[in-house]
Structures are given as structure tokens and as C-alpha cells.
Design a protein around this nucleic acid. Structure first.
Lengths: 165, 165
DNA sequence: TTGGAATGTCAACAAGGCTGACATAAAGTG
DNA sequence: CACTTTATGTCAGCCTTGTTGACATTCCAA
């Protein structure tokens, strides 16, 4: 490690200590990131899985169960339980596909959209505060590192969502 | 939103769309962040909870159960279940305190240190790759935003750990 | 038309969170 | 010494959310 490394500064920030701090920062920050929605959801008897489903249905209305499975990276049985609850409670609507009747297309109802709004507002508020504190350049760096940290397939999903935004 | 906002550029990057992308980036990146350790742990019959305990015991050898509870933000029943398994399997040692005999001080055994090393190596490798791809300035921004996103109490823990590093 | 592939549902189980109650031991306080 | 507080461990039971296995429906292609 002490050998003359070419470039000097370009490698210096990659010490074990720096990496460990990055790991811990992710851990603590993610807790903050989910804290506000978790509180709201818990009050309604839902969990983080419901939030994820609601978020991505809102983001891509009419998406199929299979699509959602790819994005969320869970088993269909696990997702199905969550969807069943959301449908039963009238937050999500499931419409049989017209072209392919095996598929179910998912939409938020008005009530679902309302909850989505509430969750998104809470989570965005924290994000906004963090962004403001850190400044635009820090935000750009933040996004760059996060994107580099994803699995390739997840990055593909992430970028695909970007375009539709 | 379209009203003349003072400062212009300083607020422009805080659109709903930017915030939503940040939220999704956190979601997808965290999956990547935990993917490699999760695989290793699963092979040994452990989960993410065990990883967290091992990480912070490694980071602060001799830490007490109460300390760990504060940092991890779980209940003692939950942590105890994890610690019991780790102690039974000979990865963690629990020593009665000398000054205060009510306290248990936690240490990794050689076997525990070995697993910690394996987990940390896997997770650091991904972090290192992301850091390298993104570059030093992006990394600084990344860390700044994450720190701003934490709950104050978590930030306190995070900064306290930094010093001992 | 029949068999395989794709899509989604239901049942049962495990990990790991949670709360509540309680035991023990040690420390601190009157 | 009696009493309270603190630190920890444990039991029982619940919830969310992950898993695998079995199954129904639908589509498509041989």
C-alpha cells in the first residue's frame, strides 16, 4: 500500500478506512431514508414492501405483476401477498390484460394515489433537506456513486425509469 | 413552481423529478450494497442482522450490548437472538465487565474476525469499484448527502465512530 | 388439439423485526 | 441495610416479508 502509486491523489481516497466510512454512511443514511414513510405505513398496518409496490405502480401505471417482480427483486408470492392487501383495501386496482389475459395491469385508485402522495411528500422532504444542505455538486456526486453501486440489471431498471419520468 | 424564484440555479435542481430519482437511486443502490454480504451470510445460515452485529463489534471491540443496541436501533430481544447464535457458533465472545460486572463486553473471536474480513472484503470491493468509477469529488458529495440524510442521533453515532477509526 | 411456457394465486414455513413480562445481578442511594 | 435503578438475558407471542411448493389459467406453437 505504501508503494509509490502513480497519480497519488487519485488513489489516496480509497483507503480501507474511507471505504468503511462509506459503508457505515450507507447504513445510517438508509435508516433515515426509510424512517418517515415507515412511520406513516405502520400507522395503517402496512410495511416497507407496500411502499415499494405503491411507489412503482405510481411511477409506471398499468405495469404488470411480472414487471414489478423484476424491479422489486422479490418472489411473486411475496409480492402477491402485498398486492392482495392493497387491492382488498381499495388502494390498487388490478385489471385483466386485454391483449394477454394472463397478465394483470396494476393501477393506483384515488385512495392509493393519496397515500402515495403522503409517503412521497414525507420522503422527499428529507431528501430535499439533505440536498439543500449538501448543495448541487454534492448531489451530482451522490447520484453518480449510487448508480455505480447498483447491480447492472438494477441500473438498467433505474435508467429505464428515468426516461419515462 | 413557475414563479420567479430567487437564486435560480440554486433551487432548480430540487424538482420533484430530481427528488424521485434520488429516492429510486437509494433503493436500487442499497440492494447492490447488501447483495454480496447477503450471499455469503445466507450460505452460513446467517442474515443481515448478524452482519450488522459483526461489523460494529469489529469496529468497536469490547463494546457493550447497550452500546450496540443504540447503534443498531433494534430491540434487545432481537439483538439478543442474533448474539446468542454468534456466541454459540464461536464467532463472538462475551466477557463480563471488570469495572461494572453487569455489562457484557463483546469481541470477535478469530473465526468471527475471519468472517468479518470476508464480508468486509466483498462489500468494500463493490464500494471501491463504485468510488473509482465515480471519482473523488463524487465520493465527497456522496458522503455529504448521506450524512445530511441521517437522523441527528444516527449522525451522532456515525461521527463518533469516525473518530475512533 | 394437445403439451409446454408464461402468468398469477394460494398454502405453509422461516428469519428477523416488534411488544410485554419477568428474572437476575450489580450498582447506586437513602 | 433496604430500595431503586441499570444492564442484561429470556420466554411467549405477534407481524412483516422473505422463501418453496403446488396449482389454475391462459397463451402459443407443434
Amino acid at each position: 500500500m505504501a508503494e509509490g502509486h502513480p497519480g497519488g491523489e487519485s488513489l489516496l481516497f480509497l483507503t480501507d478506512e474511507q471505504l468503511r466510512k462509506g459503508i457505515e454512511a450507507m447504513f445510517f443514511a438508509y435508516r433515515g431514508f426509510t424512517a418517515d414513510p415507515d412511520r406513516i405505513l405502520h400507522d395503517q398496518g402496512y410495511g416497507r414492501a407496500h411502499h415499494r409496490a405503491i411507489h412503482f405502480i405510481h411511477r409506471s401505471p398499468g405495469t404488470t405483476v411480472n414487471n414489478l417482480l423484476d424491479i422489486l427483486g422479490v418472489t411473486k408470492q411475496s409480492l402477491n401477498r402485498v398486492l392482495r392487501a392493497l387491492i382488498k383495501d381499495g388502494l390498487v386496482e388490478s385489471r385483466v390484460g386485454t391483449r394477454d389475459k394472463r397478465e394483470r395491469h396494476l393501477f393506483l385508485t384515488d385512495a392509493g394515489a393519496m397515500l402515495e402522495r403522503e409517503l412521497s411528500t414525507a420522503q422527499s422532504a428529507r431528501m430535499r433537506a439533505a440536498y439543500r444542505t449538501a448543495g448541487p455538486e454534492a448531489v451530482a456526486g451522490f447520484r453518480t456513486v449510487l448508480e455505480a453501486m447498483m447491480d447492472p440489471e438494477m441500473r438498467r431498471h433505474f435508467l429505464a425509469l428515468k426516461e419515462s419520468g
